[in-house]
């Protein structure tokens, strides 16, 4: 689902104000991109170009940073991002099974967003909640010891 959304002038104005306020700090690029992603939901090329020209730096530099870090995304994400931990401890405890249950129930693949725009399925590196393995993280909430598909169903329902 990568249909480009039209962004509003307010969104650009908001980001522009943030950049003007921060651009004289030392290398505030990551911080600005963080806020840009909050405002727009993701960082498509047009937003990256806007950031670059407003900060007076090459687009290639912005693009380089966006593609480097897991946190930044160039495709729109669902309302809730389901992060499945695939760190070693979770892997051993069945992270792949958790991913399988989620792909079946949501009918999407890894990195994809559901048709209704509610969920994006994604994998993260170790979230440091290994004693709860296998773990999924949705927003601020952590769910551990995911073993049965009923559990998965129950968690998804909470956010639907």
């Amino acid at each position: 689902m990568t249909t480009a959304k039209a962004f509003t002038n307010e969104q650009y104005a908001k980001l522009g104000a943030v950049i003007d306020q921060k651009k004289d700090l030392r290398n505030p690029l990551i911080e600005i991109l963080r806020i840009a992603q909050e405002i727009f939901g993701y960082l498509p090329v047009e937003v990256q170009e806007f950031v670059a020209s407003r900060m007076n730096i090459p687009v290639s530099k912005v693009h380089g940073v966006v593609t480097f870090y897991n946190f930044f995304t160039m495709t729109p994400k669902g309302k809730h991002i389901i992060n499945v931990c695939t760190g070693t401890a979770c892997y051993v405890k069945g992270a792949l099974r958790v991913i399988q249950m989620l792909t079946e129930q949501l009918n999407v693949g890894m990195g994809e967003t559901t048709m209704d725009g509610l969920f994006t399925l994604s994998a993260v590196r170790c979230v440091g909640a290994c004693s709860l393995a296998p773990v999924i993280v949705i927003g601020e909430d952590t769910f551990g010891r995911i073993e049965k598909s009923d559990q998965v169903k129950e968690i998804i329902n909470r956010y639907s």
Binding site: G87, T88, A89, R125, C126, G128, A129, C130
Partner: peptide, 11 residues
Amino acid sequence: DEGEPGTFKDR
């Protein structure tokens, strides 16, 4: 920036 899989001592 603790990211070694299975490690959460610093946290």
